[in-house]
Design a protein around this nucleic acid. Structure first.
Length: 359
DNA sequence: TCTGGGGTCCTAGGACCC
DNA sequence: TCTGGGGTCCTAGGACCC
């Protein structure tokens, strides 16, 4: 989707159409930009930018707080349109998905025809524009969709993969972030084409074990499948305070609030968790995590809060000030209400399907 | 200019087991 | 008296994605 959150706001509030819209937290609350409309991007406003800076660049921009529930609704409708074409849909986020339509494309007159049909359906059914990239693998499709934004449609023919990718910045490749990009630049590698032809040994020294894989992707060789059954592995919540907090009542209140939120989300997902991780960011931005794992899964907010609180106790030093506190739960286990649970002497759970049948 | 919040995956070291 | 090799699990940190 194009500038998804901002586009949804412009869809729901016609008075915002044609205007610079920036979705994100407030500048006073240390918010950053989650999405910027194309009108705002013309002023240099970008995602992940501090809101204070965004509003300096574009003072006339309308700032809107995110409404994730609403974005989720529209996302589900878009994904449903995708699934009406093929069951092989892999959502990457609320606003992006891979589709494997190898079997279905011919029915629509090929990749181009299918892409046009999808764009029309989304515009008609949801009222938003979508950019589509088509190709023989994920890397090519992804970069093709970025290349055409907004409202784009780029189809890369079979056999043209490496040639198509070569001129794009290495940073455009999935898995090359700021760090890897900086290291590559130092080696004189700027484009995907440079990466494709770089010395393999040198690349591995710089990127480690990811080197060979990234080089394969850069050459247009990518045989990753569409994964339709992505199971959630963690549930968490975190909050950045409007101002740095010392240890005290306020910090304890925040910890309680975050624990409540995590407990609520855990419940909503119908899961319990064996591991609780406390995340703290100091005023100087240094971030630490502390985790504890229990044999028995927990979903009780009070348990989560107590565990997080005791970990906080253990790291606190006089004079510490924090800007962020978060709690993540992992090692998720499906919740079984009211069902008898059996445990072995060593603390492991009896989950043998044969035992379940026998019971 | 001053850095969100939701995640995933990987690595390295250490405890522990046989 | 000195220390293998296979494995799993946990912890902490960090890169990366949208």
């Amino acid at each position: 989707m194009d500038a998804f959150y901002a586009s949804v706001e412009q869809l729901d509030r016609p008075e915002l159409r044609g205007k610079p819209v920036v979705v994100g937290g407030s500048a006073e609350g240390r918010g950053v930009v989650a999405a910027a409309s194309y009108e705002a991007r013309r002023f240099g406003v970008r995602s992940a930018m501090p809101m204070s800076r965004a509003l300096r660049l574009c003072p006339q921009a309308v700032r809107v707080s995110p409404r994730f529930q609403r974005y989720g609704e529209l996302s589900r409708r878009v994904m449903a349109i995708f699934r009406s074409v093929t069951p092989l849909v892999e959502p990457l986020s609320l606003d992006e998905a891979f589709l494997d339509a190898t079997e279905q494309a011919a029915k629509y007159g090929g990749a181009d025809g299918l892409a046009r049909w999808l764009k029309d359906e989304v515009r008609r059914g949801v009222g938003l524009t979508v950019s589509i990239g088509a190709g023989t693998n994920k890397t090519v499709a992804k970069i093709a969709s970025d290349a055409g934004k907004p409202d784009g449609l780029v189809v890369v023919a079979t056999g043209d993969e490496a040639t198509f990718l070569a001129p794009f910045a290495a940073r455009a490749l999935w898995g090359v972030g700021v760090r890897a990009d900086a290291a590559l630049q130092e080696m004189g590698i700027r484009t995907i084409g440079d990466l494709a032809s770089a010395d393999a040994a040198q690349l591995e020294r710089i990127l480690g074990s990811r080197g060979p894989m990234l080089q394969k992707l850069a050459r247009g060789e990518d045989d990753r499948r569409i994964e339709t059954d992505g199971e959630r592995k963690s549930v968490g919540a975190e909050t950045t305070f409007a101002r740095d907090l010392p240890d005290g009542e306020e910090l304890r209140d925040e910890l309680r609030r975050v624990a409540d939120e995590v407990g609520r989300r855990l419940h909503a997902h119908g899961t319990e968790a064996r591991t609780v991780t406390l995340k703290l960011r100091y005023a100087n931005f240094r971030t630490i995590t502390r985790s504890t794992t229990r044999v028995e899964p927990m979903d009780d907010t009070e348990d989560i809060r107590a565990i997080a609180a005791s970990m906080l106790e253990r790291v606190l030093e006089p004079g510490d000030r924090f800007r962020l506190l978060g709690i993540q739960c992992s090692h998720l286990v499906e919740r079984e209400h009211g069902q008898l649970r059996l445990w072995r002497g060593d603390g492991t759970r009896i989950e043998d399907p044969a035992w379940r049948t026998a019971s």
